[in-house]
């Protein structure tokens, strides 16, 4: 058990970390794992005290969010509401107020849950993750950061220092939708984020990602390819979302939902979001 207070201390203790070490931030995931006996860690690094990682600040060309920023911090930040609107929307739906006060951005990234509510939004917002260690620092896109089911490319000695969100194009339209059935405190069954521009009647820069439909957060690249540069029509959007739900999603049946429901809902929700953002009437 180590409880560093500064980034420097954190990097020093992490330098000796092995793969069995667990990094504790706000505890909303890890404490459940401990309690249910799924994890019996020997080595835990409690990062909660590294207050310098709790910030939201403007940076050249975008916004930098410290990894220990909580969902509540994001909601309370005028900068975040302005520069990462979709992320704030998603942060508001992560859980109850009690959870939002502890759940952190870095914890969310590091846990790499396929059901992460923040995940699809970070992907659509082109977020980049800054990893630091005594060896140096590097920045990777979130799409590359997640490598599989609850897996990331963070090395044992690295710390998720922050996330950079580049400034969104001025005319970009964005949407987010979480489907959890229960309206609060739910783990998502399907979560979708979408961004696009409409330029002279043509769709540009379509970006979309979804959670809870595969072993990790996935980009809906089939949909993006099908729509980019096209004039939107109901038929086109229907076809694109259908293809995407068939190709990009790899959902499973589990205790919360069915693969069929996840796939169908991904298609229906994505279709509605696109029609809505593109200004086309009524999804169904």
């Amino acid at each position: 058990m180590q409880r560093p207070r500064t980034l420097e201390q954190a990097l020093e203790v992490l330098a000796r970390a092995t793969s069995s070490a667990r990094l504790l931030a706000g505890g909303t995931d890890l404490m459940v794992e401990f309690e249910t006996g799924r994890t019996h860690p020997d080595v835990v690094f409690d990062l909660w005290g590294v207050k310098e990682l709790r910030y939201v600040r403007a940076e050249n060309g975008g916004l930098r969010l410290g990894s220990l920023s909580t969902c509540r911090d994001l909601l309370d930040s005028a900068l975040a509401r302005e520069g990462a609107d979709l992320l704030v929307l998603a942060a508001d739906e992560v859980g109850a107020e009690q959870i939002k006060n502890r759940a952190t951005l870095g914890g969310n990234l590091g846990t790499a849950s396929p059901a992460s509510d923040l995940g699809p939004v970070l992907s659509v917002l082109r977020a980049r993750v800054r990893l630091v260690s005594l060896r140096g620092e590097r920045e990777v896109s979130v799409d590359d950061f997640w490598t599989g089911y609850r897996a990331t490319q963070r090395a044992n000695d690295e710390l998720i220092e922050s996330v950079f969100i580049p400034t969104c194009p001025r005319d970009e339209r964005r949407g987010f939708r979480k489907v959890g059935t229960r309206r609060a405190q739910s783990i998502s069954k399907v979560v979708v984020a979408m961004a696009l521009r409409v330029d002279g009647g043509v769709l540009q820069g379509v970006r979309s990602a979804a959670g809870s439909v595969a072993e990790r957060i996935v980009r809906l690249s089939t949909l993006e390819r099908a729509l980019d540069g096209q004039r939107p029509s109901r038929a086109l959007v229907s076809d694109a979302t259908r293809d995407s739900a068939r190709v990009d999603a790899r959902p499973i049946d589990d205790v919360r939902s069915t693969a069929r429901y996840r796939r169908a809902t991904l298609q229906r929700v994505a279709e509605g979001l696109i029609l809505d953002l593109a200004g086309i009437e009524g999804a169904h």
Partner: peptide, 19 residues
């Protein structure tokens, strides 16, 4: 009447919407 069941019932009545 979970969303999963409602979806299946809806698709049974509207087979064209099946993926």
């Amino acid at each position: 009447a979970t969303p999963e069941r409602l979806l299946e019932a809806w698709l049974a009545a509207h087979p064209k919407e099946e993926l």
